[in-house]
Design a binder for these strands. Sequence first.
DNA 1: TTGTACGCGTTATCAA
DNA 2: TTGATAACGCGTACAA
Lengths: 341, 341
Amino acid sequence: MKPEIPTLDDVARGANVSTATVSRCLNSPEQVSAKTREKVLKIVKKLGYTPNFGAQALAAKRTNTFGAIVPTMNNAIFAAGLQAFQEELGRNGATLLLASSSYNAKVEEEQIRSLVSRGADGLLLIGTQRSENIYHFLEDREIPFVIAWSYQENKNRSCVGFDNFEASHALTTKAINLGHKNFAIISAYTASNDRADNRVKGIKAALEDYGIETQNLPLIECEYSIQNGAESFRTHIEQDNRPTIIMCGNDVLAAGAVKQAHEMGLKIPDDISITGFDNIELASVIEPALTTVHVRHKRMGMLAAQVLLKQIEEKSYRDNIKLDTQIVEGRSLGRPCYQQR
Amino acid sequence: MKPEIPTLDDVARGANVSTATVSRCLNSPEQVSAKTREKVLKIVKKLGYTPNFGAQALAAKRTNTFGAIVPTMNNAIFAAGLQAFQEELGRNGATLLLASSSYNAKVEEEQIRSLVSRGADGLLLIGTQRSENIYHFLEDREIPFVIAWSYQENKNRSCVGFDNFEASHALTTKAINLGHKNFAIISAYTASNDRADNRVKGIKAALEDYGIETQNLPLIECEYSIQNGAESFRTHIEQDNRPTIIMCGNDVLAAGAVKQAHEMGLKIPDDISITGFDNIELASVIEPALTTVHVRHKRMGMLAAQVLLKQIEEKSYRDNIKLDTQIVEGRSLGRPCYQQR
DNA sequence: TTGTACGCGTTATCAA
DNA sequence: TTGATAACGCGTACAA
């Protein structure tokens, strides 16, 4: 009763050729005469033959499968880029193996090993920050990988990303020029997240450029969530020296901050300015729309896939691609009230 | 220079046992004496041995890999459920193969075949609506699958979902009781999307329960996006017989509608009520907060994984799990103005 | 252009 | 409890 799954042998028998010929018909058709090719493909269709994955992987030593480890799928930050990555893989006949690390370095390391042992031909990693061990692990096994969401000049490691420091620096400079001097920050944990870290560093650097003290800069680190954004906002506002602007590590935190501001009856941007980062859909929908940093997530995902595929073809290929970002101006950033006229 | 990857043979040689014993140590340790087990595991560790995926798949006829095809990763609707699905798989030593169909039935079918030929042990499918062909394909090959996001009584097919009709019906009834008579709908394309279809049907059924004509009910179908929500909203509003409420197929569309209402200077809910569906984060952040339907996405993803894993263990296992939903009351739904006092 | 035959690294059966 | 050994299904030198 079991509908036996056809194998290469079955096809070969049906077409009166050898298994080698059938294999060639499927993998390098140009090596086979049109006539036999046709004959073979007809049988393939008739039998509904599909290559056995395990056998193929074993013999060919590749799976056409690529792994990605993202910190989370819970918010839109990585979703768009990942979708683009997956689509580009699909266009090239490859599939995506997905894992998420919950922003936990240890989990990420396990996931990397797991995906590799699952036969991933290459990996997409988010950000640069992880133990050298794991880089060695990949390099020893010659597993191609590409780092996304962060840009880093490094001839030995491919990346497709943007300069978080620079973008954050530019946004901060803009705020300073509007008259802000009293800053506060809500960020993701910077210790294990180079994107978050660089965004904070970008803010500090810009402040220092203008001689603003950063020693006691109020900074709250938390996981990305609306709830955390709201709570951190409250904490900042209730400090003695209330900031005129709160810069958030991403739009999700900023959305929480905006929500909380409404609840506390604070006018944005008159009483308090708020900025985000990433320009996810959220940013344009909330009132007032967020001033944030636009990142071309889809393009990044697509390019990451292309770089990875190139590294499969050409082992020594490496590329560092820097995508530019741009500030999106919403009404959440304005002059501080003592500057208004 | 190539650091040769160790095989089972290497371990066997190193430990002075047969490959069979090594294999047993790894897969069913209880069959091996504590002494040899220890000896073997030491060598495994020393050599950094990891089983070869292809060989394992070939010999064991399973990959410990599960596929999922979601319509899109671009919005948060599927992300949370998918993450939970993936995490539950991870807890059971399995991995997720991910593909997205862009809401295209043909693409979905290709993806299903592709994931199966990539060795997926089972599949997560979204919604019930697809060709019988593809169901037969899976059933012929005895590939376990579970349908999520839709509930359907069906002894032969597992599902973990909620009743879109019922939820939508309840929400509509609530609106009617507030005094609304003049409805309009913005929905995803219903032809290939049973969730969207049932949501629309739920609305119509509720209206008919109260003797409200549904023959000429204004209905716009479009892809989920803020932009489309905004445009469809405008179209509805500019009709001769302006509705007092616009019910949206999901929160993303509703967010677009709210945005457009602001731009057109319409007060929500006095001038126009708006409802969503899904209760994604967005819903609570926009002003006014959306009245929407809460769905326990995470629980759904987790349960889907559990059902799937059970089907692997016990071939004939099937389950239909219905999750309840609840209406979340935001200020986007209120009495129509002619009803206000 | 086609066929032969071996190897890939496991798991699983059977016997010891 | 352990060891030989036969599959598993495909890719690919090498030969014809």
